[in-house]
Design a protein around this nucleic acid. Structure first.
Lengths: 351, 351
DNA sequence: ATCACCTGTGGGAGCGCTCCCACAGTATCT
DNA sequence: AGATACTGTGGGAGCGCTCCCACAGGTGAT
């Protein structure tokens, strides 16, 4: 009777055992029905389902998690302050894709911000306690220790945007190299010949890939690299403004700019306007991300679109696969998968 | 040995029992230390803490949840599609407040969208499974069955914005009545005498209260109610535009408008402009919510600000209290608490 | 000295599941 | 006919905790 009062045997929620008694079968059989095992006869299954309905039975999740050693939850970790999460459409698109894919399953999504030190410590605790079956890492910087922590704890994880060409975690990315190529080839096709590039932060792998794509497109078209046409930026508007100034000083004859992000392009546009250059008449401009900024810019900005929602969906796919694969043989070594989705050029008036 | 292989006795995470053995104490004592019970001597506590550190022990959450019948998680339920969640600053402010308050505890926050039927069914399942200790309900419409479901399942809950004066759930709200009063009194003080009101959807209790406050302010100033000055709106811009048209037809001599929301005010402004009325020279305009719209309107809109972040914080306070109070005596009846926080008028150029 | 009452501690029982072994009953092969 | 294999089922053991009872040893009142 030690526990009789606690659980409230009579008034509380029904248990598996009670369902079994009601249906006149054993505990194991009810468990099999609940979990959709095929090893149950149709008649038995019907009887159990009737008992479940009559009693309004819902499995106790904690018991299930304890016995089966899983949580049926995965975490979406955002290593940014909440402010940015709401400000950038990237996250909402990603969340939409993730949510849509997850709705098919009975997995639960946890949204975890790790924008400051305290939040990060909490997250580390949380992961150490294995309170989730897997982790989605989005928007992680190259020097972030989070991916290593996750790997060390042997928690299945998928990262959006590999940290380098040698990424050890499973990753999903869009094709930054080809996206940049498309942008540059489009500019070449429109007759531009002096095409500059303002890069993103080069410690972000995607920014490196975009710069690579830019160079490759020019090289393949027979133009030899002109380093004066490349200026390192940092994804910010201010950086774009500054970089554009430097480029214009060095190469007053440039006739196109491929910017590493839409925000960067906005900064570049501001300087071009100050310098009296018309877009696209004097200088064509292309951004990256196809964000709201691009659509509302004057003139509307040609930009490279990443299929972010689709990326979210595929990240869940891969994560669920990884979780399934690690069960029940945690020893088997899985080679990391690197999925790359196509990017797409959205042409508007700026080019 | 049935389970020997499953759990991985040797290589896996340490258990309470192992910590106890290491520290040379009993299982109960370790549990007491982990849970911060005062009934442990300083020496014993130190020994246990050392063992915990050496072994890198982290409690197994599922086991804890099963044994103690709690989950250490609460849900923030958003009965809207995700789109609106990201579009409206209301939610991000709320989330910030909630997050800040929750960071003090070791409770986990779950963000759950219930914007469509499927999501709602999932949520119902989730609640029935008692996978959270408590629920925060935000932005709930009057006819939403969610609050009743929660009440019926006897899950502690706090609602933002009571559904009526007779709300049975614990609620946190801002003072809509007084906010409206402040707006109208401000207009009166500036010499306006023909003050119109475009209400919000009147099935939203807060909108009713704003209308009440509007009427009370006028009555207290000695003006008898002129029903022609009130037009029912619906919180949308289109509704504001339409309502403003109706008001102007009926009362061409009005000299001020108090709108039920900033969005409504934006619609009203559009019509006023079309009608050639200058703001604030001919007609003063006041909105509600103090959203980004208000700051960026031309002219900047005077608006009533609700302390949304603070509301989020207080909701958590109340919810945690409620959870604590229901343990371990679920029978004790708690009277619902209705907390009302002050609203504040932010004066700008439109009035 | 006796009794009552604290403080600190150990450990049994139980939370509600899943996993897996055992076994009855039937079908299939030699 | 016997051996072999499968299908469907029951239930023991165990997951890692918390709760609570029991009890040792100390302290103060009578």
């Amino acid at each position: 009777m030690a526990h009789g009062a606690r659980g409230g045997r009579s008034g509380g929620r029904p248990t598996l055992e009670e369902v079994a008694a009601r249906a006149g079968v054993g505990r194991g059989t009810v468990s099999r029905v609940i979990n959709g095992s095929p090893r149950v006869s149709a008649a038995t299954r019907a009887a159990v389902e009737a008992a479940v309905a009559e009693l309004g039975y819902v499995p106790n999740n904690a018991a299930r998690a304890l016995a089966a050693n899983r949580t049926d939850a995965i975490a979406l970790v955002v290593p940014e302050p909440e402010t940015r999460f709401f400000a950038e459409p990237y996250f909402s698109d990603m969340l939409r894709g993730v949510g849509a894919e997850l709705a098919e399953t009975q997995m639960q999504l946890l949204l975890i911000f790790a924008g400051n030190d305290r939040e990060r410590r909490r997250l580390a605790q949380y992961l150490a306690a294995h309170r989730v079956d897997g982790v989605l890492l989005v928007s992680v910087h190259a020097d972030d220790p989070l991916p290593d922590l996750v790997a060390q704890l042997e928690i299945p994880a998928v990262i959006s945007g590999p940290r380098s060409a040698a990424e050890t975690l499973t990753s999903v990315d869009s094709d930054n190299y080809d996206g940049a190529r498309q942008a540059v080839e489009h500019l070449l096709a429109r007759g531009r010949r002096r095409i500059a590039h303002i890069t993103g932060r080069l410690d972000v792998y995607g920014a490196q890939r975009r710069a690579d794509g830019y160079r490759a497109a020019l090289r393949d078209a027979g133009y030899e690299a002109d380093l004066r046409l490349i200026e390192v930026g940092d994804f910010t508007e201010e950086g774009g403004h500054r970089a554009m100034g430097a480029l214009l000083d060095r190469c007053p004859d440039l006739d196109a700019v491929f910017a590493g992000s839409d925000v960067t392009a906005a900064g570049a546009r501001r300087l071009l306007r100050e310098a009296g250059r018309r877009i696209p008449d004097d200088v064509a401009l292309i951004g990256y991300d196809d964000s709201a900024i691009a659509r509302h810019m004057d003139p509307p900005l040609t930009s490279v679109r990443q299929p972010i929602q689709e990326m979210g969906r595929r990240m869940i796919d891969l994560l669920l696969t990884e979780i399934a694969d690690r069960r029940p043989a945690p020893t088997r070594e899985l080679e990391p998968r690197q999925l790359v989705l196509p990017a797409e050029l959205v042409v508007r008036a700026s080019s």
